[in-house]
């Protein structure tokens, strides 16, 4: 698996990525997270309209070997969920950045984006933790 961390995304310590477009933050999990999980078999998505504070549990993803929570990288309400990913969670193994996005949040506090890592910071974090 390629360990790409696209430059146009922001990242969290918990291995979520965020794509910002105005007030909308699209959220997914990183290639590192996908690799750690292995074959993903199930994802529990939130409902449209649900509100989440930053750091609250947003979704749950299960693989053959593990179960993990996905946390809201920023505060906001869910405006869209990726229904096809809910039906075919293995899409995350194939493409976690485009087809494999998880939810779109309308941000209630867009300044929280400043606290997220850039791809360079995230990659440094990963390599620091590997040793």
């Amino acid at each position: 698996m390629s360990k790409d961390y696209p430059n146009d995304l922001r990242y969290t310590n918990d291995h979520e990525w965020v794509r910002i477009n105005g007030k909308i933050a699209t959220v997914g999990i990183t290639a590192y997270a996908v690799e750690q999980l292995g074959d993903i078999t199930l994802i529990d998505l939130p409902k449209e309209g649900e509100k989440f504070a930053r750091g609250a549990q947003l979704a749950t993803v299960e693989s053959v070997k593990a179960v993990s929570d996905i946390y809201a990288p920023v505060s906001g309400s869910v405006v869209k969920v990726n229904v096809p990913v809910g039906d075919s969670p293995e899409m995350l193994n194939e493409d976690c950045y485009d087809e494999g996005w998880i939810v779109e949040l309308e941000m209630s506090n867009p300044s929280e984006v400043d606290q997220l890592m850039t791809s360079a910071q995230y990659e440094k974090e990963l390599s620091d933790n590997a040793h």
């Binding site: 918990d14 291995h15 979520e16 999990i29 997270a33 750690q36 993803v61 070997k65 593990a66 179960v67 993990s68 929570d69 996905i70 946390y71 590997a130 040793h131």
Partner: peptide
Amino acid sequence: MSHGPSEPSDHSS
């Protein structure tokens, strides 16, 4: 994302 209890402990722990 955080790993639940069934995640095997990491090699580097």
